[in-house]
Amino acid sequence: MSTAVAGPHATRAPGFWQSTNGKKAVMAITGAILFLFVIGHLLGNLQVFDGPARLNAYGRFLHNLGELLWIVRGVLILCVVLHIVATVQLWARNRKARPVGYKVKKSVASSYADRTMYWSGPIVLAFVIFHLLEFTAGTIHPESRFIPGDVYHNVVAGFSVWWVSAWYIFSLILLGMHLRHGIWSMFQSVGLNHPRHTPVLKQAALWIAILITAGYISIPISVLAGWVR
């Protein structure tokens, strides 16, 4: 049996968006913007510890931004859509890249967080939708009434339900794992890697992810423990 190439023909090469590298760069940049949002949102949320007046004033401030608020929301939605579309397309491509699987396959270098990005991502997405319905739209607000404008009341009432808090904590731990890989991976995807800086960046990614997760989780824990009421 000969395996000689019978008829190679030149084709137009995949463009930027068609290439895996281009899609990963888009994922890195959209991921970076969403990461900045996660930090900003955390700083805003932590004002819950300053009492109702402060948090509700912050809520009013955001709503009074008017068009600017919708521009920011638009950018975030665009980032989420691009991040997900690129992921889904690459995932489909990667599944096709190995039609016959291995009988035995062991991981030797990757971490649990690295390998579960395909799981942490969709679960965090489901959480974000639930979170928006609960605290922004107010359509889901178990066991209490959603009061538009009274952010502090909504937070305390929402997190007083144990399973809402549990779901929140679980999702935020997954977000932390997603960030633990994503924070350093986005630098790699846009071509920034240095033998000296990258090990530091990987350590920093771990600690930033832990700090962000701890910061967010402190809110439902404080509500459940009765420190914030």
């Binding site: 084709t11 990667n94 190995r98």
Partner: peptide, 11 residues
């Protein structure tokens, strides 16, 4: 990319 290899996930 034409060869059909998958994408890198930096793991």
């Amino acid at each position: 990319n034409t060869e059909g290899f998958g994408s890198c996930t930096n793991i």
